[in-house]
């Protein structure tokens, strides 16, 4: 067991898989010699060499297209798109090519690849380098979508993503890179499509993802200490496949549902979860499900503005307290 940053967990997760399988290759902008703009891939170039860790031009379509062509013909590429906002310039691959080739070819074409990307706000980068765009991917049949919140999950879910036979979009949260967590020694392999109850409770279920997980945890601790409300916090971890059984099971126990989403409000993943719970567990609910989201606006750059729009532990505490009538 060692303490590791989320940032270092990325490099360790990739290294674990590249060591295991020589068909795993890694490409992206500044990922090799420079070690990544977030320093999340430091050491990989030195360890695995320029043939397996390849620096690319600023050509997001070429990066994703090349990853796909390599995946179709036998490699297991990991491609980095530096900021998830840049998905918009290479979205053809994410929306049209990776997820549809198997279906359109009646099962002939395979596409086992991972796209990892820096997602989320908190760095004061403004509206085009701060978004949480996991919803852009969740809506597309054929993709799998993962967003870890801890260093251990980064390694385990990276391994699961690399070993998965489908295209997996792997969202790393930029504001989590510096956070630390305990990580066991040796190989770590997790399972896609599994949510995790990170804090058990009986009064309300709070569903969160990525940066919103530690914020939900902090809110839950305060709700318990200050207001006697015992919240269960569920880290979704994987939007597709979605572990609805863990979510429905938690709601059956607590009878209240809150989602905490960093994305702007419309069509957020929380809406899908609320819809599933409303369809399948309506009579488990003692009150309306509540979504806590960023308002439906572009993200501002100034710290004072950005801090207001993202869901905070304060906002989660206030919302849960008010909804439970405490």
């Amino acid at each position: 067991m060692a303490e590791l940053t989320y940032r270092d967990a990325v490099a360790r997760g990739i290294a674990q898989e590249m060591t295991r399988d020589p068909d795993v290759v890694f490409l992206g902008e500044d990922v090799g010699k420079a070690g990544g703009v977030f320093k999340a891939t430091v050491g990989l170039y030195e360890q695995f060499g320029p043939l397996r860790v390849r620096d690319t031009p600023i050509s997001e379509q070429a990066i994703l297209g090349a990853a796909m062509g390599a995946a179709m013909t036998g490699l297991k590429p990991i491609a980095e798109i530096m900021f998830s906002d840049f998905f918009a310039v290479c979205f053809d691959y994410i929306a049209n090519e990776f997820p549809k080739s198997r279906y359109m070819s009646n099962g002939q074409t395979k596409c086992p690849l991972v796209v990892r990307t820096g997602n989320g706000a908190g760095s004061r980068f403004g509206a085009q380098h701060s978004q949480s765009v996991e919803n852009w991917c969740m809506m597309i049949p054929g993709l799998k979508v993962v967003a870890p919140s801890t260093p251990r999950d980064v390694i385990g879910l990276m391994a699961a993503a690399v070993r998965d036979p489908d295209p997996v979009i792997f969202f790393e949260h930029k504001s989590l890179y510096a956070t630390k967590g305990e990580v066991p020694d040796g190989e770590i392999v997790d399972t896609l499509g599994t949510a995790k109850i990170v804090r058990p409770g009986k009064d309300a279920t709070i569903i969160a993802l990525a940066l919103m997980v530690p914020r939900a945890n902090e809110a839950a601790n305060r709700l318990k200490a200050e207001h006697g409300i015992d919240c269960e916090v569920v880290d979704v971890r994987s939007l597709v496949p979605l572990d609805t059984q863990t979510i429905l099971g938690s709601v059956a126990k607590t009878n209240r549902l809150f989602t905490v989403e960093e994305n702007p409000r419309l069509c957020g993943w929380g809406a899908e979860i609320v819809s599933i719970v409303a369809d399948e567990a309506f009579y488990d609910l003692d009150g309306p499900p509540v979504r806590i989201t960023t308002p439906h606006i572009p993200l501002p750059a100034a710290d004072i503005l950005e801090d207001i729009v993202l869901p905070t532990p304060d906002r989660i505490v206030e919302t849960v307290k008010r909804s439970l009538g405490s």
Binding site: G65, M68, A70, M72, T73
Partner: peptide, 10 residues
Amino acid sequence: LPIACGAAWR
């Protein structure tokens, strides 16, 4: 075109 590049890279 990029996809063909990827197959060639393999």
